[in-house]
Design a binder for these strands. Sequence first.
DNA 1: ATGATAGGTGACCAATTAGTCACCTTTCAA
DNA 2: TTGAAAGGTGACTAATTGGTCACCTATCAT
Lengths: 130, 130
Amino acid sequence: MVTYHRHNMDEVFRALADPNRRRLLDQLADTDGLSLGKLCEVLPDMTRFGVMKHLAVLEGAHLITTERHGRRKLHYLNPVPIQVIHDRWISRYATPFTEALASLANKPSTEADHDCTPTHLRDVHQGNAG
Amino acid sequence: MVTYHRHNMDEVFRALADPNRRRLLDQLADTDGLSLGKLCEVLPDMTRFGVMKHLAVLEGAHLITTERHGRRKLHYLNPVPIQVIHDRWISRYATPFTEALASLANKPSTEADHDCTPTHLRDVHQGNAG
DNA sequence: ATGATAGGTGACCAATTAGTCACCTTTCAA
DNA sequence: TTGAAAGGTGACTAATTGGTCACCTATCAT
């Protein structure tokens, strides 16, 4: 019996909540298998220790995996927890209605002003221009 | 020009990171338009103020919207931010490979032990039985 | 009007988190 | 074998978060 599908959603969401950590993931999505030193270049305003901590959080959430190669530690993106989140949580709310609304929301045009949205969704629309 | 597609991902992810808040969202997904008092029944181990704070976080992340009706405040699920996250972030990593791996991971059977996974993904498999 | 009901505010405390640092081990190249 | 390079640990501080409370306003039924 394997248990790797029991990803802790708390940890995954919390890990994803930080823009620095998302940046690290994005970097690994672009170039996988980077060392700590290389990943430090992605977050130049932070010390090596800060980056280490963020990577530890990502690893704790199983969003990345690591492999030691000599004196270097290589970091690999692991997209499984994200897929799991999608499958068992996000798809619940991604109804056709939502998809239509979201695609509508992505258009900056006046079409969105037709506003066939229920009243309790209206406040989402109150963006200021600029 | 509308800006409601500029959801702050930090806030959304952080809001989703708390199980109490996810429970509130689940409740609203089941029965939309509940008052604070009703939502307090969902989290019986917390005071009204705690629930209020969690709802405020959810509202700050635009995951719920509210409407006052007399002396009551009704809360409505707003699935748009989740859809946005899916569209612009999650789908990046939800490759066919990932989907296959995830569906594999969801099976507790021995099929997962064929393990055609890259080495750096292996540690995801090390679950302890029981 | 009046009491009960529903919700709100600001202050407050405990626990957690983010980031840094001094110091350490392991590995590689010469 | 020695020194530089890569990474790791534990302690520490500052900031943030989670939760509670005393006290408040607004609304409804009578």
